[in-house]
């Protein structure tokens, strides 16, 4: 970089900053505008506030629930279930991927099953799971687990199989065994894939938990949504 930027460079930087500012302001404006229009529309009767609610009553409702602690409790429970489902899904998925990588026979046998299981709409199995495990938190976590574990297996195994053949040859030539190959090459080189799988999994587990709560729970955000639509206080749902 030059110590004395030319006039042109100064102009360029200025216009760059101006664009950045404009983008930020427009973003916020759209956000605010959306809620203002919503509020006005509800006020003037363009939309029915009984069905579509309105921002002001959502805020009032949220504050009320924050005060009696019920909102935090529901959020906490959903968060807990998501974390547990996500954690178990990741650990189990990775373990299964290790087994499949280790034994190519099992891998070949399981391949078509993985494809089928992966294309299954897992959340559609939620009612069955709830019948099996009962109307409780265990069932909800199982649904979350089910939605994430197959994707984890497929992604992590893909990462494992992507390890460089010559990296493996190098470790072998130094006398390393299969365990060394796993821990010194395959695992570290698959780490980015595992992290990608984790990112996808958080979202999937969350979906699983919400769906589970739709069907089974007495607490949690999913329950709140169902409860809200049943008693028609749309203020609940909008939170």
């Amino acid at each position: 970089m030059n110590n004395n930027p030319s006039k042109e460079q100064i102009m360029f930087i200025k216009s760059l900053n101006r664009t950045k500012q404009a983008v930020k302001i427009t973003r916020i404006a759209i956000f605010l505008l959306f809620f203002i229009i919503w509020e006005i529309a509800a006020d003037t009767g363009v939309i029915d506030p009984f069905i579509f609610s309105r921002p002001s009553s959502i805020i009032v409702c949220a504050i009320g629930m924050l005060k009696d602690g019920s909102l935090l409790r529901h959020v906490g429970i959903t968060l807990f279930e998501t974390c547990v489902g996500f954690g178990i899904g990741t650990v189990m998925g990775t373990l299964v991927a290790v087994i499949l990588w280790w034994n190519s026979f099992i891998n070949k046998v399981c391949d078509p099953y993985l494809v089928v299981l992966n294309s299954l709409p897992k959340t559609a199995l939620a009612p069955i799971i709830i019948v099996w495990l009962g109307n409780n938190m265990k069932a909800i976590i199982a649904v979350a687990l089910l939605t994430s574990v197959i994707v984890t297996i497929i992604n992590v195994l893909g990462g494992f199989n992507n390890a460089d053949k010559d990296d493996i040859r190098l470790v072998r030539s130094f006398g390393g065994n299969k365990k060394d190959v796993l821990f010194k090459v395959v695992f570290p080189s698959a780490t980015p894939y595992i992290i990608d799988a984790l990112k996808i999994n958080v979202g999937l587990s969350f979906v699983g938990v919400i769906v589970g709560e739709f069907l089974a729970a007495k607490e949690g955000l999913g329950y709140l949504i169902v409860y809200g639509s049943q008693v028609f206080t749309l203020g609940y749902k909008q939170i």
Partner: peptide, 9 residues
């Protein structure tokens, strides 16, 4: 071995 690429991890 020393291979074509250095295979430093």
């Amino acid at each position: 071995y020393m291979l074509q690429k250095d295979h430093l991890f």
